[in-house]
Design a protein around this nucleic acid. Structure first.
Lengths: 342, 342
DNA sequence: TTGAAAGCGCTACCAG
DNA sequence: CTGGTAGCGCTTTCAA
């Protein structure tokens, strides 16, 4: 805590060179002799110089940070472990490049949009990640309108107007359905995610398509919302059905667990009376009994890839304006929640 | 995207006043006539002016953001939903005050310390939150040494040298033990948290103290690490014991669930053969069967209170240098994982 | 009350 | 290759 912080001026003075030379030397730019560069670097080391992000930020017009807005209620945030993995992946990708993550929470979609506007207006971040995209997501227009670099995560198929990272769930869901068909199931229902979300729709389509491929009739499409309670409600809905499915594919693990617990409360045997699978591969699925058959997604890799792409986009908007990164699909994880049809 | 962003210069020009007057007017400082103030504000509104955080940051020597370093492995991050609540609370407290959260991840303690040093050196944040404090935590010296405002979360009892927020777990643990004693249990073990952590020790002490109060012998102290697998291992340890406890108080919910699942795999009935309780009150405890008896902590409120205190500290270091905030203890939540002794 | 001007710490341009 | 110097957008001091 000895008085003033050391700035580039101090370094330049100590090395006996101009400030501009010191800057060039420290940033590895060309235009400085090797001798000067070394002198400057040594001076910086001796003085314990750390460049001020603020000065750099103002002069380069960069914040050296990216934003991520979680748009879900605080309540859900407390229950769902899924997004922690995302964040880990993002951090892993950006911190080596000198960037930091600014995390915001917007409970409602409106609030989230407000956050994006704010972030863009005061330029707190150089770009943002758009997760949990909806079909016709309003944020797409928003970021284009306000000129905020953005990368979409699991975007609508095809002509997505922004760079994006996709880990498609279609292959995984098909694998789940095939697995069930092999076990002899003929009546396979689906507990969907909340309507409007790209990944909800993708899983519905994949489930339908896989049934068709197998030459089976389309099963019951039960509404859901990715939550534990939504899964429980789905079980009650199934209980009320005249012709009950022998297997269910849920849009995610959390709802699958809710469904399973409720099914057991209703006195059904899982998988004896009902085979259940989820999607995501969260740890919770291995805690419950029976263990959940699911697809192992890679949120950490998705987060890392998206963040990486965003930094590339910030560095070179032209070259990366439409880059699409496709991650390998998640793999089938067979638990004990699925079994042969009774 | 019409060309340049609007700056305070534009606002001043439009209002026909000096830049300094515009600044004062916009920041509600005195020294400007009401008429001028209104003219400036209107100009700002018309132009859609949003102050640049960068300019402000450089001139005020403030980053308008606070840091939070998660020091745990990415693997754990994916499984534990607990910290999401913290973050929600932090956000809730700081965003109305114009601050943002910079989130970092340090897998190891060394890495985490490096992050704190970095954060302080380049002044990316104005202060940090120190969570999961250890007894004699090295970060305490660190932040004092580098002059980084910091607030401790659940700090060591008594003479903690920094401002802090505490939600003591002693009362909750005692309530758990009393609950078990009332059910007739006489041999009550404890699955501890990882050694060295303040909240691990606090819970051990509370468990011991409560047993003493009840006039019971101290039960077995089983090592643990707050993880699911640690809980499973504890069950195996109990299985190997000559005189098995009839009840166990676990240091947190996640390990309690691991213990419970493993106990059931071993063929024990819960609570028939073994009563189990946890601590935290995470959603997972209500998903499992039997449901977990636990204590409902308030991570969101802790996060909010800590962030609030940190901003106060940044605003006025003198006045808040030693403020300690004590949150009401968590309440006992009786689930079905505890029952009368057989 | 108002306005001019000096920084905050850095980058980048442009003469020398 | 080197060294002035002009910003980046804002706050704040000091004269007028």
């Amino acid at each position: 805590m000895n008085g003033r912080r050391v700035t580039i001026v101090d370094v330049a003075a100590r090395a006996g060179v101009a400030i501009s030379s010191a800057s060039s030397a420290l940033n590895g730019r060309s235009g400085v002799s090797q001798a000067t560069r070394e002198r400057v670097q040594e001076a910086a080391r001796e003085l314990g110089y750390v460049p001020s992000l603020r000065g750099r930020s103002l002069s380069t017009q960069r914040a050296f940070s990216i934003g991520f807005v979680l748009h879900r209620s605080l309540e859900v945030l407390e229950a769902d472990p899924f997004f922690g993995a995302f964040i880990g992946g993002i951090e892993q990708a950006i911190s080596p490049r000198g960037y930091a993550l600014v995390l915001q929470v917007g409970s409602t979609l409106e609030e989230a949009e407000g956050r994006y506007r704010e972030l863009a207006a005061n330029r707190r971040v150089d770009g943002v990640l758009l997760n949990e995209l909806r079909i016709d997501d309003s944020r797409i227009d928003l970021v284009q309108e306000i000129g905020l670099p953005a990368v979409g995560i699991v975007p609508p198929i095809d002509s997505f107007p922004l760079p994006c990272v996709r880990q498609g769930s279609a292959a995984g869901v098909r694998a789940l359905v095939r697995h069930l068909v092999e076990l002899g199931h003929r009546n396979i229902a689906h507990v969907a995610g909340p309507p409007g979300f790209v990944h909800s729709q993708e899983r519905i389509d994949a489930w339908r398509g896989a049934l068709e491929e197998a030459g089976l009739a389309t099963g019951a499409l039960i509404p859901g919302d990715f939550t534990y309670d939504g899964g429980r409600a789905a079980a009650d809905e199934i209980a009320a059905m005249a012709e009950r499915p022998s297997a269910v594919v849920c849009a995610n693990d959390l709802s699958a667990v809710g469904l399973m617990i409720r099914a057991q409360e209703l006195g059904w045997s899982v998988p004896g009376d009902l085979s259940i699978c989820g999607y995501d591969g969260i740890a919770l699925g291995t805690y419950v009994r029976p263990t959940l058959t699911t697809v192992q997604a890679s949120p950490r890799r998705v987060g890392a890839a998206a963040a990486e792409l965003l930094l590339d986009l910030i560095d070179d908007p032209e070259a990366n304006a439409l880059r699409h990164v496709d991650l390998p699909a998640g793999e089938l994880v067979v638990g004990t929640s699925t079994g042969p049809v009774a």
